[in-house]
Design a protein around this nucleic acid. Structure first.
Lengths: 226, 226
DNA sequence: ACCTGAACACCGTTCAAGT
DNA sequence: ACCTGAACACCGTTCAAGT
């Protein structure tokens, strides 16, 4: 503990799973999913590629642990509930959205049915706000499922989209090009898309994500009032 | 066209992109995503692995084309609209859910911003029902986005979940195990999950997906009535 | 207990050469 | 125009051997 790493480049402390996961998150964030290999990770940690297998059973588990790590950090940053249960749900939803957006590889790696502790805390956080909101016990399971699935599914979708088009001109240029294509569709077959195309440029994905949350909340509270 | 493939095992007709895509879909469905390689695909098509690159630029495009193929087939199977606009939206949503469930690799491969024709038809189908429903033009973009994103995101999530636990005992056993774990959580930290755990076994993912659709629709129509 | 790194059994993709 | 299949530059994972 007190000896400095003097003799060679060999670590004096044993490798830990946390060190491995943090290094993996950093590579994923800065260089993308394709750049994370056991060889680059081992080089970064100054060890052999096989050493990583002592702490992590395989690449899938490594990615799951990395995703849980990011999710935990995101939830830790959610501020106190000033806006009542609905405000709290919005704050949690946005924290997940922003975390998936900043770490575009996370969405594809979080399992819905995990023992990962961050996911359990997320599940509980949404559910407890529904209790505060006064949702009847019989309706709570479906309301909770809709919110949790919407948040994870749509945030993942959004991040995946950003990842796919990364480095392909900027967002506004892509939206403008998409709008132009939609406006050239057959007027018989695609009246709606031709109309909605005009709203594509300049829209805010984050606000639209939140608008969906609000629609679900409106559906939930409409039932509460009856 | 009329000559039978007589002389050798060499194809007499040229390979087409559609043949390649259909073979890929079949391998993905029956053997899983890991089994689809250019080598197995070439062997199945009695050609060399490089020949596929003449018709398809790379593996990502092949998977995108395969996903679009499945999506097109799913939408073609949606029955006429007897239940009004809300019934039509439910029917489309279920068709997507069932297609993703039956082809668990599809969800991860469908891009939200595609030129893929099936996706455009899906987008239009949802939007046109919102027009029929009388949603005001100003609210239509967000309502459409919430539905489309919920459907794609949650269906993909559900399929991914099934894929991940494929072959790991049956669904009910897994749900029972998950419920047992949730019931053993700390009562201080996880009151909601301890309560909701009881609903896990025996619940129907497809019905719960639909309940979420209904909550969004309730939110949309609540706004329409104002 | 923990680490090393060569070896194994694969991949996607390219490309000179064929028809 | 379309196909062949060897070759290239990688992977994840294993495991005998080390400390």
């Amino acid at each position: 503990m007190t000896d400095k790493p003097s003799r060679t480049e060999r670590r004096s402390e044993a490798l830990t799973k946390e060190q491995i996961v943090e290094a993996a998150v950093d590579i994923l964030d800065t260089q993308g999913e394709a750049a994370l290999t056991f060889r680059t990770l081992a080089a970064r940690l100054a060890t052999g590629s096989g050493a990583i297998y002592w702490h992590v059973s395989n690449k899938d588990h490594l990615l799951a642990a990395a995703a849980d790590h990011v999710m935990a950090r995101a939830l830790a940053g959610v501020t106190g509930d000033d806006g009542g249960p609905q405000g709290a749900i919005r704050a949690i939803a946005l924290a997940v959205f922003d975390a998936f957006d900043a770490h575009s590889w996370v969405g594809a790696r979080l399992s819905l049915a995990p023992d990962q502790s961050a996911m359990l805390r997320f599940f509980e956080a949404i559910g407890s706000q529904l209790q505060r909101l006064g949702v009847a016990a019989a309706a709570r399971f479906d309301a909770w499922s809709a919110l949790v699935n919407y948040i994870l599914g749509v945030a993942a979708q959004n991040a995946d989209n950003a990842r796919r088009h990364h480095g392909e001109a900027d967002r506004e240029t892509l939206l403008a090009a998409m709008a132009a294509r939609w406006q050239q569709l057959d007027p018989e077959g695609y009246p709606f898309l031709r109309e909605v195309a005009a709203h594509l440029p300049g829209h805010d994905d984050r606000e639209q994500f939140l608008a969906g949350i609000d629609l679900i909340l409106a559906g939930i509270t409409a039932a509460v009032r009856e």
